[in-house]
Amino acid sequence: MEQVLDVYKLPYSEEFPVVCMDESPKQLIKETRLSINMKPGQERKVDFEYERCGTCNIFIANEPLAGKRFVETKSTKTKRDWAYFIKGLADNHYKNATKIKLIMDNLNTHAPSALYEVFEPEEAKRIWDRYEFIYTPKHGSWLNMAEIELNVLNSQCLCRRIDNIETVEEEVQAWCESRNNMDAKINWQFTTDKARIKLRSLYPKIDA
């Protein structure tokens, strides 16, 4: 935890950007009955029955100090999808960075070994060398600022029934472009000093 919080204290740097990455599934749901449109003083009414149309997966990376984020919508959630996502980050969005400090959770697909399962060894090593992987603690994924961005995305864009991946991808990209144009940043306030007070029960008891 304290390692992550120390990284968050670093000043903005184009050479060593701090980037948070996360992913979230989105269930595709189709209406089975026509809804009743909104009226003055009345909300839209949706029938409780629906039809499942599978799932998709949303990858997101945000650079909190720069106020920008990048999203991709995939039909699956595999090591291959993750490997190509971080390759795209390094080669397209941070191609001039010396080392990308990437904060993410401990999901089993988020590992350097995934790169070697997807790419040839030389390419896997090239991508790996572009990153410094920093993992949030087990049960501590709330320390990842990308979760905040996902919550905003879900509340502003995906809080309704959508039955196809094309619509999800279109609306997610529109949301991302709008939020980037707003230069929306995250004002992170949780520090190591605060952690040692609020979470003191998690620290070992040392007898002097």
Rank of each mutant, 00 (worst) to 15 (best):
F59V: 02
W82P: 00
E63T: 12
G88C: 08
N57G: 03
V18D: 00
R33L: 10
I36V: 15
I60P: 00
L28C: 10
K68F: 09
C53N: 10
D81H: 04
I60V: 15
A83R: 00
V18L: 06
P64M: 04
C53Y: 00
E72M: 06
V46S: 06
L89E: 02
A61Y: 01
R69Q: 14
I29A: 03
V46W: 06
K45L: 13
T32D: 10
Y50T: 01
N57W: 12
R52N: 09
G41D: 07
T32K: 11
D91L: 12
S75K: 14
K74L: 09
I29G: 02
E31R: 15
G67W: 07
N62H: 10
K68D: 08
S75L: 08
A66E: 09
I86W: 02
P40I: 09
F85K: 07
K26A: 05
S24A: 11
K79L: 03
D91H: 13
T78E: 01
E49V: 05
A61I: 02
T55R: 11
Y84H: 15
T73N: 01
N57T: 11
K77T: 07
I58A: 05
K39I: 08
P25T: 04
N62M: 13
K87E: 14
I86V: 12
N62F: 02
F48M: 13
T78I: 04
K79G: 12
K26N: 05
K68A: 07
Q27F: 11
K77V: 06
I58Q: 01
K79H: 06
N57F: 09
T55V: 07
Q42E: 15
E15V: 15
D22N: 14
R52F: 08
I86E: 01
I60A: 14
D81V: 05
P64A: 05
S24G: 03
R80G: 01
L65P: 01
N57I: 04
T55F: 10
L34V: 03
T32M: 14
I58S: 01
D22H: 10
I29P: 00
R33V: 11
T78F: 03
V19E: 00
K30H: 07
I29V: 13
E72S: 12
Y84K: 07
E63C: 13
D47Y: 15
T76L: 04
F16E: 11
N62G: 09
K79A: 09
N62W: 03
P17Q: 08
K68Y: 11
I36L: 14
P25L: 08
E31I: 03
I36E: 14
